[in-house]
Amino acid sequence: MLLMTGYLTTPTTSTGVSLSEFWAWVRYLSAVTPDPDLRLTNSFSELDAHQKTILSDDFGIGAPLLWLSERFDLDRIVDGRYFVEYLAPRLGATQQRTAKRGPNKTPDFVARDITGLWHVIECKGTQSGSGYSARQLGEEGPPRTGGIAQKHSIIFPAGHTGQRLVSGLQIGVPNGQPSRLTIIDPVSEDPFQVNEADMAIADDAATRCVISKALRQSGYEVAAEAMASPRDDVFFAQRRASKAFSDDAAETDRRDERAREELGSRERTVQFAEDYVGRERQFMLPRPVIVDGNPAYRVILRQGLRKEAIEEMQSNPSIDGLVSESGSSWASELGSSVSKGSEGFASMTIGNLFRSEIILEE
């Protein structure tokens, strides 16, 4: 779950070092008890309200998406806000503003499965018991409340429409109720409409989001930004609106050149699991974590992409136009997210393209 949480909370577009790339492992590794069910330790269940909210939000994303990814064979999990902001201007939508809270909030995630169906997912998490979790999910009303009240949903055309879900994770605490994951299928209002003719752009947004996160987690920050923000008329218009550039094309050319240099460099990179290249981080824990009855004092984290894919991306880091029409073979390597774990080791893969590992050692 921590590997999925770390991946999902990594921003699609940002610059600079982001703690979210390591937050789930550094912060939450000792948050869960060795019990067979998901349950917080005493120290984490007694955090102050602000820190408990952050933990609940993060677990409320990681656990449901891990479960849904396995059941629905999801091969693209996309930040809802990025999805709408990427599509809206490219479809000529007049309402491009997306709220972070309230009735106009975009759903947390949009996900595509291996059959091509798209699912809209809103996530909630709490440590305050099943009653509060039910209130987070909300009621049909009137008036609608909680997750059900999310009006700014996304509607896909017939033949592409999957489930529209709100998940609620009630996180177990010591001497309290066990964890419980509830998923419901509410009705949406005021949707963001995606038409049949727009599905190629929707696929492009999903692919770019997944690859950008994978690149960023693997240590290729400039390349991640280039992939998430392709060079087109919309990109240049947004750049001009946000800041003054004397030459937009020259600026993006320099960005792409930095991305090529970054992808071509093997400094501070490791190769693991035969042909994955990325970064490795090792952390000494301030106190041991008990896994299967054994203490672990050190954590090794590896994240990387297939070497062949990195080499191919180096020649064209941002890809003008649709990824599907670029001839890039790495795009076909995307697939379902698969998580495995046993005896102090866990891995998460996305198709045959991205792999992350966490290893606990004595």
Rank of each mutant, 00 (worst) to 15 (best):
G141Y: 01
K243A: 15
P230S: 07
I211M: 12
Q127H: 09
G125C: 06
P174T: 03
A223P: 13
K213C: 08
P186R: 01
D203S: 10
G147K: 10
I183D: 01
D198S: 10
C209D: 15
Q163L: 15
L137K: 03
R239K: 12
N195H: 14
G162F: 08
F192M: 09
A111F: 09
A149C: 05
L165I: 06
P230D: 07
L181M: 09
G172T: 04
D203Q: 13
S167K: 02
E139C: 02
I121A: 01
H160R: 15
Q150I: 08
A158C: 00
R112T: 04
G131P: 03
E139N: 05
R180C: 02
R208D: 11
Q127L: 13
A223W: 11
P186H: 04
A226G: 07
N195G: 00
G159K: 05
I201T: 07
E196H: 05
P157E: 11
I183W: 05
G168D: 04
R144K: 12
I148Q: 11
Q193N: 05
S167I: 02
N195V: 03
Q136L: 15
G125R: 06
P143S: 09
G168W: 04
F235E: 14
C123Q: 03
I201P: 00
R216M: 07
I114Y: 01
P142T: 06
I154Q: 06
G129H: 09
E140C: 04
D190P: 00
H152R: 15
P143T: 05
A158M: 03
I184K: 12
V187H: 08
S242K: 05
S218H: 13
R216L: 14
L117H: 10
I155G: 02
L215D: 07
Q193H: 12
F109M: 08
Q217W: 05
G159D: 00
C209S: 15
D232A: 08
R135T: 14
T126V: 08
I114M: 06
P142C: 06
R144I: 00
V120F: 03
H152T: 01
F235I: 01
V110N: 08
V234N: 11
M199G: 00
G159N: 02
S133P: 00
D233T: 14
A149D: 12
W118Y: 14
V166N: 03
Q193T: 09
I211T: 14
Q170H: 12
D232I: 10
S242E: 13
E122S: 05
Q193E: 14
R164A: 09
V173Q: 14
T115Y: 08
S128A: 15
A205M: 07
V194Q: 01
G138K: 11
S188H: 09
I184N: 01
A241E: 12
A149T: 01
S188M: 08
R164P: 04
D185K: 08
C209V: 10
R216G: 11
D198E: 15
Y132L: 06
I211E: 04
T145N: 08
V173W: 00
G168T: 01
M199L: 13
G219Q: 02
S179F: 03
D232K: 06
S212R: 09
A223Q: 06
Q217K: 14
G138Y: 07
S133K: 12
T115K: 14
